[in-house]
Simulated assay, not measured.
Amino acid sequence: MTHFRISEAAELVGVSDDTVRRWVQIGVLSLNHDASGVQVVDGAELATHTKTMSVDPADVGHVRSSARNRFVGLVTKVDIDGLMAQVELQSGPHRIVSLMSAEAARDLRLEVGSKGVAVIKATMVILETEKEPSA
């Protein structure tokens, strides 16, 4: 069973340590102690709660889409150079960078501070985990 310290759980979900503590206080998460007595929360409980916080793709905009990877965020950078544009979107703790035509960036009226939705449709997504400590 995977457990995370409160600070680790907060970082994973993109909230403050105090928010995780509030979740424990109101019974959303259980607080346990690891072998060294450190307060930890259960990874499976955290995952279940995190799913309740996600934005349903059907609630974003007025379009239907086969893409399920949608990140609502704030545009933090628009760099148009010639025919291309680089746009950065901050979605919670995640920085998403998109390269597009300058025409598309202008048509979308992208500017720093505007709301955007990054839609990602990929046939290959790579996941990584940390290595287990050597015994």
Results as ranks from 00 to 15, higher is better:
H49C: 09
V112G: 00
R68H: 06
A104W: 04
H62K: 15
G14V: 06
P57H: 05
D17L: 11
G37S: 02
V38E: 10
Q25R: 13
L83V: 13
A85L: 01
A102D: 02
P133I: 10
A58R: 11
S66D: 10
A67H: 07
V38L: 12
V87N: 01
I6M: 05
R70K: 14
A122N: 08
V63I: 15
E132D: 12
G27V: 05
T52Q: 08
L127A: 13
M84P: 09
R64Q: 12
D107V: 15
P133L: 14
E132H: 10
A118M: 02
G116K: 02
V63Q: 09
P93A: 10
S36Q: 15
V41I: 14
D34I: 05
G14R: 03
V60K: 00
E45W: 06
I26V: 13
R64T: 14
V97S: 05
A118W: 02
V117C: 04
Q86N: 14
M84W: 03
I126A: 11
G113R: 08
P93M: 06
D56H: 10
V117A: 02
A58K: 05
H62V: 08
G113P: 04
V87E: 03
T48C: 07
F4S: 02
R95M: 05
E128K: 14
G61V: 09
L127C: 07
R70D: 00
L108T: 02
A118F: 05
G14Y: 05
A118P: 00
E111S: 09
G116R: 01
G116Q: 02
V60Y: 03
E132A: 15
V60N: 06
D56E: 13
A47M: 15
L46M: 13
V20M: 01
S7P: 07
A122S: 14
V97G: 04
D81R: 03
Q39S: 10
H62Q: 15
V112K: 00
L127R: 14
K115V: 07
D34C: 08
R68V: 08
G27A: 06
A85V: 00
I120R: 00
P93T: 12
D56Y: 11
D81F: 00
R68M: 08
A118H: 03
A85H: 01
D42P: 05
I126T: 11
V15F: 04
L31C: 09
V78H: 01
V112N: 03
R22L: 14
D81A: 05
R106T: 13
E88T: 02
Q25F: 12
G61Y: 05
A47F: 15
I6D: 04
M84N: 14
I120M: 02
G61I: 03
R109L: 06
V87H: 01
A58Q: 12
R22M: 12
Q39A: 15
I26S: 11
E132F: 09
V112F: 03
M1R: 15
K121L: 06
T52W: 05
K121Q: 12
I120A: 00
V20F: 05
Q86R: 12
E132S: 13
I80M: 04
Q39W: 11
H94I: 01
E8T: 12
V40Q: 09
T48Q: 13
E128D: 10
